[in-house]
């Protein structure tokens, strides 16, 4: 209710101004018009903005998280769909932690990114400010960097109903982009456990997004793995809270 009224406010002002102009333009009165008082210039309606603080906490033992990407989108955009192919942008994020491909995406109103890697046990808060008319859904994405292509986040979470000073919190699971085999081989994992390769265009896993089965590690019988027992994880892997601060 409030939102639609506010949206209509500026429109009404414009319509009134248009009618006034039309009326004075139609005047055929020969009498010199009395000097009109200078009409109060309609103050342009300020663009109402909402600011949301998105806090991501890393709940894993030894999986640093790539800088968090917060995507503001419409309600018809899904960052991923389980059982379906990952987009190229998601493949890139899940294999390398690079979220820059979302910046140019038409479906993404705004991309806000964290300042750095979130180490296990640490948190970061990312602020995103949106014009009221752009407030709809958020998606949150981050790679578990000591893996081949694990990521976590939130998918198309509606913030339209979040009132000022209200906050919500939830936990999230680890997904597998399905784009790179979980070989755990030396040279295939970009995180500090390996400092190997990030993105690779080849898709040599099942090519659909699924719940990550966890890493195996050399300690648990995968002989060629560069990972050890500390890199194993279970769900949930992060907690995420969103609050509307302005």
């Amino acid at each position: 209710m409030m939102i639609s009224n506010l949206n209509r406010g500026p429109l009404k002002l414009l319509l009134c101004a248009g009618i006034l102009a039309a009326v004075s333009g139609c005047s055929d009165n020969d009498n010199p018009a009395p000097t009109p008082d200078p009409a109060p210039a309609p103050t342009p309606a300020p663009v109402v903005e909402h600011t949301y603080a998105v806090t991501v906490t890393n709940l894993t033992a030894n999986q640093p998280l790539s800088p968090v990407a917060v995507l503001a989108t419409g309600s018809d955009y899904f960052a991923w769909q389980t059982g379906e192919m990952a987009s190229l942008a998601l493949e890139t994020l899940a294999e390398s932690g690079d979220s820059s491909a979302y910046a140019d995406m038409e479906a993404v109103t705004m991309l806000a990114t964290g300042t750095g890697v979130i180490m296990p046990g640490m948190s970061e808060t990312i602020n995103i400010t949106l014009a009221e008319a752009d407030v709809d859904s958020l998606s949150v994405l981050s790679m578990l960097v000591n893996t081949n292509d694990a990521f976590t986040g939130l998918n198309r979470y509606s913030i339209a109903g979040l009132a000022l000073d209200e906050s919500v919190s939830m936990t999230a699971n680890a997904y597998d982009a399905g784009t790179e085999a979980n070989s755990e081989f030396k040279g295939t994992i970009p995180g500090p456990a390996d400092s190997g390769e990030g993105f690779n265009a080849e898709r040599d896993d099942v090519d659909y997004v699924y719940i990550h089965p966890g890493v195996i590690s050399a300690d648990d019988g995968l002989a060629d793995s560069v990972l050890d027992a500390s890199h194993r994880f279970d769900n949930p892997v992060v907690s995420i809270s969103i609050s509307r601060t302005e």
């Binding site: 699971n173 719940i211 990550h212 089965p213 966890g214 195996i216 019988g221 995968l222 002989a223 279970d234």
Partner: peptide, 21 residues
């Protein structure tokens, strides 16, 4: 395990493991 012809398990640790959900 990773031994299809023996080992402890007939399952493949790279294929058949899962986490919930």
């Amino acid at each position: 395990d990773t031994d299809a012809a023996g080992g402890m398990s007939d399952l493949d640790s790279r294929i058949h493991r899962w986490l919930n959900p």
